[in-house]
Design a binder for these strands. Structure first.
Lengths: 242, 242
DNA sequence: AATGATCATGTATATTTTACACAAACTACC
DNA sequence: GGTAGTTTGTGTAAAATATACATGATCATT
């Protein structure tokens, strides 16, 4: 940690504020990926106390002179090497005793990334970094399991309000892959024909003149996202009017 | 403030954590009400520096030994007398210089209340408490205007995913009042017949054998919410399947 | 050449959404 | 007591969307 970076803000009214300024603030990142079949999450193995040896969300304390969003990006980069990912705030967890070293309130951020495009490597207090299938994550440091569950819920909500996939799939993909992604997130099976109808009617996909190769069955057509249209869709969301 | 309540948590690793534990944490409450025509928000006039004399969201620092959600309820009660309201977390704001006294990160909570049922009175560092029409709020202490806008967006989203009204309307109300509430939140007009069809099809309303009295036009039938069904609807949300 | 796997595709039905206009019931005022 | 002014309450047709469902096509493997 770069302790020399820290600058203390001016405290004009020490007498009044003295008893309050003894908290720390952290960020924890929930990074979702998709390997074509399963939804996965990026975890680190902690090399430091507390919870040394435990698997945990990539997270750390932020500096006094650092915005929390910037802090989330920095912490993620320092621990896993991941950069330039779009982080979105999910929820803040502030139970009194959630951290053994003192009062630490944490804000969870989530992101969706393509596993293949994101080489990760352990750094700082991360001893290891690895992708885990969501279904197999059971024991995490701190209250990170609770945080993970909250982010899963958030992801399920998000996927109902805007398209998902550009962030998680390779540049070219089949419709079945996209459907498997939706099924992995929402955790229920969907009808193939209806799924295709729906996703194609959004007009965010471009049909390519390319097909899968080397598969032991009829090869599927490849698609890519129309980046422009996709982004507009994400920004505006589906418009659910009452 | 009850400073004597504060207990410092044990700090096992002072050398390492020392530079970090110098932040404070606050909560700010965005309390929405509805007077039959306009969406309103509860503000306090600050009687203390910083931002003395400014109108602000009811908010304050939380104690070291206090959960943030409990803190939100306490702060709201101490400043405005409001109690037993359902507070929901919205977003955390952590810009470095948002508070002049030092590094203070704040979490916004929102709630919906019936103005008539909630007598409010200024206490603690609140010099005055008052309801303001959303449209007339322009200048607030700290970054509270930004926080308010974020909560407005949240409210708009919420209203699309679950019914609203039980928390904001008197026990008996007309369908036009309910529609005006929706229009105030979503900021666009709706078709009367279609609105009625939709809201009645949810089966959360009970038609009463009572009518408005003393109005200079045909009196409207009164309705109330079916509390059981309403709650189930709120918990489950509308089910938007893909 | 047969097997096994996945891909691609259409239709009929039910449900939901949208757009739209006029008589009824009350008060206030003359 | 009649008229003007205001808001309530109601239905339908057309369009869009959602759902349920089965079969031949194309590749690798043997």
């Amino acid at each position: 940690m770069q302790l020399e970076q820290i600058k203390y803000p001016a405290q004009e009214s020490v007498a009044l504020t003295e008893p309050f300024f003894h908290m720390a603030f952290s960020v924890d990142c929930v990074i979702f990926g998709f390997d074509g079949n399963e939804l996965k999450i990026l975890l680190i193995k902690r090399g430091e106390e507390p919870f040394g040896g435990y698997w945990a969300l990539p997270g750390n304390l932020i500096y006094l002179n650092e915005n929390i969003h910037d802090g989330a990006a920095r912490v993620l980069r320092e621990l896993t090497g991941l950069q330039n990912v779009y982080l979105e705030q999910v929820e803040t967890f502030g139970t009194v005793n959630r951290h053994p070293l003192g009062r630490v309130i944490t804000t969870a951020y989530y992101s969706l990334v393509k596993i293949a495009d994101c080489p990760v490597f352990a750094q700082s207090h991360a001893e290891e970094v690895s992708w885990f299938p969501i279904s197999k994550v059971s024991d995490l440091a701190f209250d990170h399991l609770e945080i993970l569950k909250a982010c899963m819920q958030k992801l399920k909500k998000i996927v109902r309000g805007r398209p998902v996939g550009f962030e998680l799939l390779p540049p070219k993909f089949t419709l079945s892959e996209l459907q498997r992604l939706y099924e992995a997130i929402l955790e229920y099976p969907m009808d193939k024909r209806n799924f295709r109808k729906k996703i194609l009617s959004m007009n965010i996909l471009v049909e390519l003149e390319q097909y899968q190769e080397g598969v032991a069955h009829r090869p599927a057509r490849l698609y890519k996202f129309d980046e422009e249209k996709y982004k507009r869709f994400v920004e505006e969301g589906f418009s659910f009017a009452v």
